[in-house]
């Protein structure tokens, strides 16, 4: 590799520098959130549109708990990942970027924990 290319190779090599998982997961969680939101509307607001047997299943406590924990998990992941993308795009100082990611990451974990203890008493 020519001398003028020095420093370029390190920037684009190493699996730790890939962003494929977060990119893919962002889209999958986004899609799931749309479906979950529609399902949430059926459970909580449009119940009369469903057959009673289905409604009983959906209103079952265990199902609802699992459903809303997954909802909260996807919501927090999607939101935090999106915020991390914004930091990567617009904050050029590595120190500030790491600090903000840490603060928002902890906020996300706390948010999920609050949601978890509210859903699963």
């Amino acid at each position: 590799m020519a001398e003028f290319m020095r420093g370029y190779i390190d920037r684009y090599t190493g699996s730790a520098k890939a962003g494929d998982f977060s990119w893919f997961a962002q889209r999958i969680t986004g899609l799931c959130l749309i479906l979950i939101l529609i399902f949430h509307m059926f459970i909580n607001h449009w119940g009369s549109l469903w057959p009673s047997a289905m409604m009983w299943f959906m209103m079952h406590a265990m199902f609802k708990k699992v459903f809303y924990v997954v909802f909260a998990l996807f919501l927090v992941y999607h939101g935090m990942n999106g915020v991390f993308y914004v930091f990567d795009d617009y904050i050029r100082t590595a120190g500030w970027r790491t600090t903000l990611k840490l603060v928002f990451g902890i906020t996300g974990v706390v948010y999920f924990w609050v949601a978890f203890i509210a859903i699963v008493p």
Partner: peptide, 8 residues
């Protein structure tokens, strides 16, 4: 396949 590559 890099955060400064296609995923940006």
């Amino acid at each position: 396949n890099n955060k400064h590559g296609v995923w940006r």
